[in-house]
Design a binder for these strands. Structure first.
Lengths: 202, 202
DNA sequence: ATTTATACTGTATATATATTCAGTAAAATT
DNA sequence: AATTTTACTGAATATATATACAGTATAAAT
């Protein structure tokens, strides 16, 4: 997104503050009052600049018709929780969705697509316990050491990822479980995504 | 709060929906359009009823001057993250606050007061790793098996709680650490709160 | 039985508000 | 060097909007 000038930042902050305070956006006159402008056109042109740069949208003709676009991402949304069933892939199909929970965009360092409800203790030494919710980002670009959601045929597991040459090792964080060795070209093998965070609900 | 009639509920829902859609509250005419009323006074009187019952506030004279009061609690807030320093209690004093993070009310099953940034691995077998954020509810009412924030003089630790009679055991979840035995009347001993959830940021 | 609240239509209007036009001036970009 | 963007003042205005007033009718509360 295009950079804002100092004044434009002030106007944007003013809008945010006003909404927080009153529950509705300011008029041009309100902005002038807050920032000390003497002409409503000062506010108007700043608003049009903010609109042009994509920080707000303006509903033409409507009073207080300002909408903060940058906040769309920050607005509270819900994200699905998927049960990690022994057989079957963690798809976003309805039958696999356990529930939706509210979340805030900036909860983790990376964005993510869904929560995986952990079954079993194969990753316990990595601090991932039964019933934990692991935030999964859908991607096949993973690095050695990443905790990944791997699918082998219909079996889905959460393991450390380690690849060297053509061979992939899926390593559990629990001595009671065995490492899994796979060839990159193995049929039915797929990296669904990787862990970018964790929530434990109690 | 006083009960709403079916029509009043519809109007309230309409306001919420409109704000979600546009980012700003509706006018009387907007409400009429959405709900099929033919007179702006239909909307006006419903708004005044909602105001009287405490569900909204109306800024007189302002266009779109509707503010949802019931949503105040649901609005996203921020909660402090406190560093678990070896010496010193986890107070909410500024110097101990690492940062604030946004959170949604219903993230965990219980409400909580702050996040504690975990140092060390004394609770690793409980799946609590270094740098994890443990959600702490301030309370001294804890039960055996709870993970508690205990203070002994200026030392603060996170441990399993176990009491029998007059004796309290603070049990680490790591064989490399020793259990701590305390008498209930020991001076300088205090239960700060208990863990009600956990977040791992990567 | 009377008052009050609910649930509207319909009309009217003062004013709140967006928005355009005419300028001035400095800074940044091309 | 010319153009665009930024950053305003100041005045004017069409219209968007809140809000009051006059009704009608039913349901609920006192």
């Amino acid at each position: 997104m295009k950079e804002l000038t100092i004044q434009q930042k002030k106007v944007l902050q003013c809008i945010k503050f006003y909404i927080k305070k009153t529950g509705f956006p300011p008029t041009r006159a309100d902005i002038c009052r807050e920032l000390g402008f003497k002409s409503p056109n000062a506010a108007e042109s700043h608003l049009r600049a903010l609109e042009k740069k994509g920080y707000i949208t303006i509903e033409n003709g409507a009073s207080r018709g300002i909408n903060l676009t940058e906040n769309i991402a920050e607005k509270s949304q819900t994200i699905p929780v998927i049960g990690l069933v022994a057989a079957g892939s963690p798809t976003l199909a309805d039958e696999n969705i356990e529930k939706h929970i509210p979340y805030q965009e900036s909860l983790f360092l990376s964005d993510f697509d869904y929560f995986l409800r952990v079954k079993g203790l194969s990753m316990k030494d990595a601090g991932i316990m039964e019933d934990d919710l692991v935030a999964i980002k859908k991607t096949s670009e993973v690095r050695n050491g990443d905790i990944v959601v791997a699918r082998i045929d219909d079996e889905v597991t959460l393991k450390y990822f380690q690849s060297s040459g053509n061979q992939i090792k899926l390593i559990p964080a629990n001595d009671d479980f065995d490492e899994i060795y796979i060839n990159k070209e193995t049929e039915g093998f797929f990296i669904e995504g990787k862990s970018v965070g964790l929530i434990r609900e109690n």
